Simulated assay, not measured.
Amino acid sequence: MAATDFKDYYAILGVNKTASADEIKKAYRKLARQYHPDMNPGDKSAEARFKEVSEAYEVLSDSDKRQKYDQFGQYWKQAGSGGWPSGAGTDFGGFDFSQYGSFDDFINELLGRFGGAPAGGGRRTYSYRPGGSSPFGGFGGFQDASGFDDSMSAGTDLESTLSLTLSEAFRGVQKRLNLGGEVIDVRIPPGAKPKSRIRVKGKGQASPYTQQRGDLYLNVEIQSHPFFKFEGDNLVCEVPIAPDEAVLGGSIEVPTPDGNVTMNIPAGIRSGQTLRLRGKGWSKPKGDCGDQLVRIVIVAPPELSATEREYYEKIRSSRTFDPRSNLKRVSL
């Protein structure tokens, strides 16, 4: 066989031939993170390198496969230097390597590919699975037909929905959650917003191979409130005012998450106009608050006293302002 057939898996992982299982695993995880397709979208060379690193790890992380690989390496060195005539049977510990025409033939059978009998396992056919679980927080991985995923060594990330009241989200809260019989306490920091995503490290599903656990991600939903609402990142409310307040202006009390504050209404304000209360809005991670937007709605009184009606009629009879004067110029 050609000398270029052989792949030095130790060199691929950057470890010595005497490396321990932990050293091999550590080297694999570092390289898998570096060359993972989700970290290098569209980079075919990185994808090929990731496959090569994964193949090297699968062989060297299994003691039986590693032993056969090391024995084959000895055979390749001697056969490549003319140590045996072509076709001669060469036995290393009861294993005849001369039956393989190339290194790929040997690896395909060792890993159970292309119909070859696996060395103690099921047949594996690799295919890239975008978006799958991995030890790097949600990257895809190479998955075989038997369900084994080279990137699942740290377990699977889980997601769940967490419903909070507006008060809990604003001030922060500690929640007790039941995860399939496991009870955990989770601290929700102040300022959670709708669609916020909170990571709880090490509380995901355990890997069946290493028992290491992924992470739990909590998707925040905030219960509706009769007064406060979110519009994007802004906290918004609607405040009604009377017609005389709109005309003359004045001061009114407005609720905020931290209590009522006094807000000045400018004379002549229009219905639908928005005023800003600086620093009275939603909590921020650094401890300060954003702004609260106050949308003004002018509301006519549903009922009038005799005195109110008298004065409104006087206003109407003496009013010089025509709010519809511009409509006289409207035409098709």
Results as ranks from 00 to 15, higher is better:
Gly268Cys: 00
Ser163Ile: 06
Val261Trp: 02
Thr165Val: 08
Pro118Gly: 09
Ser317Leu: 07
His36Pro: 02
Arg316Met: 10
Gly140Phe: 08
Leu216Tyr: 04
Arg316Asp: 11
Gly93Tyr: 03
Ile198Asp: 00
Arg49Lys: 15
Gln223Cys: 06
Pro323Gln: 09
Pro266Val: 04
Ser20Thr: 15
Arg29Trp: 09
Asn108Thr: 03
Thr210His: 08
Leu327Pro: 08
Ser167Leu: 05
Pro243Met: 03
Arg123Leu: 10
Val254Ala: 04
Ile188Lys: 09
Pro240Asn: 07
Leu164Asn: 02
Asn16Val: 06
Ser251Pro: 00
Lys195Ile: 06
Leu293Met: 15
Asn108Asp: 15
Ala267Met: 04
Arg123Met: 11
Gly73Ser: 11
Gly287Gln: 04
Leu277Cys: 03
Ala117Gln: 07
Gly214Gln: 01
Arg295Asn: 05
Ile12Glu: 00
Asp291Arg: 03
Ser153Glu: 08
Pro208Thr: 05
Glu182Lys: 13
Leu158Tyr: 06
Lys30Tyr: 11
Ile296Val: 13
Gly131His: 08
Leu60Lys: 04
Pro190Ile: 02
Phe139Asn: 11
Val53Glu: 03
Ser151His: 09
Glu245Arg: 00
Glu159Val: 07
Gly181Arg: 07
Arg49Asp: 04
Leu218Arg: 01
Arg197Gln: 11
Glu159Arg: 09
Phe72Met: 13
Gly281Ile: 01
Thr4Leu: 12
Val261Asn: 03
Arg129Gln: 06
Ile107Val: 15
Gly115Asn: 07
Phe114Gly: 05
Gly290Glu: 07
Val239Trp: 02
Gln74Leu: 11
Gly122Trp: 03
Phe103Met: 05
Gln273Val: 01
Ala21Trp: 06
Pro301Gln: 10
Gly89Asp: 15
Phe170Asn: 00
Arg33Leu: 15
Thr210Ala: 10
Phe228Ile: 00
Arg176Val: 14
Ala246Pro: 01
Asp291Glu: 08
Arg316Ser: 12
Tyr57Gly: 01
Gly214Ser: 05
Asp38Glu: 14
Lys25Thr: 15
Met39Phe: 15
Glu47Gly: 08
Ser318Asn: 10
Trp84Arg: 14
Asp62Met: 07
Ala46His: 09
Tyr128Arg: 14
Val239Tyr: 00
Gly112Glu: 05
Arg270Glu: 11
Pro190His: 03
Ala169His: 01
Pro190Gly: 02
Lys68Cys: 00
Ala242Tyr: 00
Gly94His: 07
Arg329Leu: 12
Ser45Gly: 06
Leu13Gly: 05
Glu308Gly: 06
Asp233Met: 11
Phe139Tyr: 15
Asn326Tyr: 12
Ile296Tyr: 00
Glu303Leu: 06
Gln99Lys: 13
Gln211Asn: 12
Arg33Ser: 13
Arg199His: 01
Ser81Leu: 14
Gly42Asn: 13
Lys68Trp: 08
Lys26Tyr: 12
Asn264Asp: 13
Phe106Ile: 10
Asp104Thr: 12
Thr156Met: 11
Glu308His: 06
Glu221Met: 09
Tyr209Ala: 10
Lys201Leu: 10
Asn264Ser: 12
Gly181Trp: 05
Met39Lys: 15
Pro37Phe: 05
Ser54Phe: 03
Ile298Asp: 04
Ile296Ser: 00
Arg49Ala: 13
Glu310Tyr: 14
Ser283Ala: 15
Ser283Cys: 13
Tyr312His: 08
Ser86Lys: 15
Asp22Cys: 10
Glu182Cys: 04
Phe6Lys: 07
Arg66Ile: 04
Asp233Ile: 09
Ser151Glu: 11
Thr307Ser: 07
Pro135Asp: 03
Gln67Pro: 02
Ala48Gly: 08
Asp96Tyr: 12
Asp22Lys: 14
Ala267Asp: 03
